[in-house]
């Protein structure tokens, strides 16, 4: 076969695999960015020592553990504490003062991965005197990740970088006061996670579960196509109280979405938006 024919066949196989995964396991990756999904699936092919996506599909349909491995590949868990310090600084300066006017708060981290961002937020909320009256929801579609995130235990090898991020983010204390460290791990203070609820939630297939004051969903929408982005942004809008905040990733925006006019821009660079009164 010519290389270009191979490419056509591969696209058909990929389409069928995503359909099979949806029908058998209920996970819907059909509206994910295709180039991204293709890369991840091909990565799995190499790992499984297989030659074609059809072969992988056969295995995945009959063996749940093979599916679990694919899910891990398709969920992007690259994250860090106080990732993009300028974002946290902006939240501290532009969002927190408004959040302080509420007697009770709910914040939703959608697509929380291994939880680094959730714990970073908790630290910031504690320093601003808000942690005690905030209910934090942290959700991800990947159940294995959720289990990890809940523990608040992270590898120690990045702690220097995290400490620098924390300081740049406007941290008020000594970062090491928040965790205990051993040779390999840092274990965050249990008090930080007292009001956290970790749950499996799939932005693609699940619906509104709470009315919240702020949604943090950074570098998740970039993996979705336009239709799915719009659908998820609609879900966010329904989940936010009037005047609630939406925080997206640095390279994400509402610009091409139907939802744009429903928000006021709070920080155009850090992608922080506020739901308008209708």
């Amino acid at each position: 076969m010519q290389e270009n024919d191979i490419s056509t066949v591969e696209n058909i196989e990929l389409e069928l695999l995503l359909q099979a995964v949806y029908l058998q396991y209920g996970y819907d990756f059909r509206n994910y960015s295709r180039a991204h999904v293709k890369r991840r699936v091909k990565h799995r092919l190499v790992q499984e020592g297989m030659k074609s996506i059809s072969e992988l599909q056969n295995q995945i349909l009959h063996d749940k553990t093979a599916f679990d491995r694919l899910v891990r590949d398709l969920s992007i868990n690259v994250t860090e504490m106080f990732r993009n310090p300028a974002f946290y600084k902006s939240v501290r300066e532009k969002v927190i003062p408004i959040l302080k006017t509420y007697p009770y708060l709910k914040i939703w981290h959608a697509g929380c991965a291994t939880g680094e961002e959730v714990f970073s937020f908790a630290i910031m909320l504690k320093e601003e005197g808000l942690l005690e009256r905030t209910q934090i929801y942290a959700t991800d579609f990947n159940p294995y990740i959720i289990k990890k995130a809940r523990n608040g235990i992270f590898p120690i090898r990045y702690i220097k970088e995290y400490t620098a991020n924390y300081q740049k983010a406007g941290g008020l204390e000594s970062f090491s006061d928040y965790y205990h460290a051993n040779d390999e791990l840092v274990i965050f203070d249990k008090n930080l996670s007292k009001n956290m609820v970790f749950a499996e939630h799939n932005l693609v297939t699940d619906s509104v579960f709470a009315e919240v004051n702020m949604i943090v969903c950074r570098n998740v929408l970039i993996y979705f196509n336009n239709n799915l982005q719009n659908k998820v942004l609609h879900l966010f809008h329904k989940s936010l109280v009037v005047g609630g905040f939406l925080a997206l990733g640095t390279k994400e925006s509402l610009m091409f979405s139907d939802e744009e006019k429903k928000y006021k821009v709070i920080d155009p660079k850090q992608k922080i938006f506020k739901k308008k009164y209708e």
Partner: peptide
């Protein structure tokens, strides 16, 4: 960010490994 090209000739970004 990684930069990817989709088959409809639009761009995608990713923060994967």
């Amino acid at each position: 960010y990684h930069l990817l090209v989709e088959e409809d000739f639009t761009l995608s970004l990713s923060v994967e490994e």
